[in-house]
C-alpha cells in the first residue's frame, strides 16, 4: 500500500484547451488531468494513477498524465465536461482543488450527464 493513498494535497488547476483528449464528434472525452512532473513527485502521484479531484463541493476521478506544460504547483484539466463540473464562474479557468489518489476507474461522461439531469 502506498503512503500517498492517505494524503490529500492542494493543487492549482488551470483549465485549458487540450486538443488531444477529445474528438470532434463529441463522442469521446478523456477523464484526464495533466500534472507537472515536479508536482506529481512531491505529491506521491504517478502517471497512470487515478486521482479524485475535489473543488467547490464536487468531485471527479481522473487519470493522471504528466506534462511539463502544467503549472508547477498543480495541473491542467482540459477544457470540457469534467473541468466544467468542478468549476464555477469565480474560478472558471483557474481554481484550487484537493487531490487524493483514489481506487477504481476514472469518471465517465455519462456519470456527469446523469448528475446534470438525473
Amino acid at each position: 500500500m502506498r503512503f500517498s493513498k492517505f494524503l490529500k494535497v492542494e493543487a492549482e488547476i488551470v483549465v485549458a484547451r487540450y486538443a488531444l483528449v477529445s474528438d470532434e464528434t463529441k463522442s469521446r472525452f478523456e477523464p484526464v488531468i495533466f500534472f507537472h512532473p515536479e508536482f506529481a513527485k512531491r505529491s506521491g502521484v504517478k502517471e497512470g494513477d487515478v486521482v479524485e479531484v475535489e473543488a467547490n463541493g464536487r468531485a471527479v476521478k481522473l487519470k493522471v498524465k504528466l506534462s511539463e506544460s502544467a503549472p508547477e504547483s498543480g495541473g491542467i484539466i482540459p477544457n470540457g465536461i469534467f473541468a466544467s463540473y468542478l468549476t464555477n464562474f469565480d474560478g472558471f479557468k483557474r481554481f484550487k482543488a484537493n487531490i487524493e489518489v483514489a481506487e477504481g476507474e476514472p469518471s465517465s461522461v455519462g456519470e456527469i450527464i446523469e448528475r446534470v439531469k438525473p
Binding site: N79, I81, Y85, T87, N88, V116, K117, P118
Partner: peptide, 28 residues
C-alpha cells in the same frame, strides 16, 4: 454544448426548463 462548457451550477438548471437542441451531433 453548455453541459460540457458551463459550470455545473448553471448546466444543471437545464433540467428546470424545456430544452430544444438543434445540433448535428449527439452532444452531452
Amino acid at each position: 454544448d453548455p453541459v460540457s462548457s458551463l459550470p455545473y451550477d448553471v448546466a444543471s438548471k437545464l433540467k428546470e426548463v424545456k430544452t430544444i437542441v438543434i445540433d448535428p451531433r449527439m452532444s452531452p
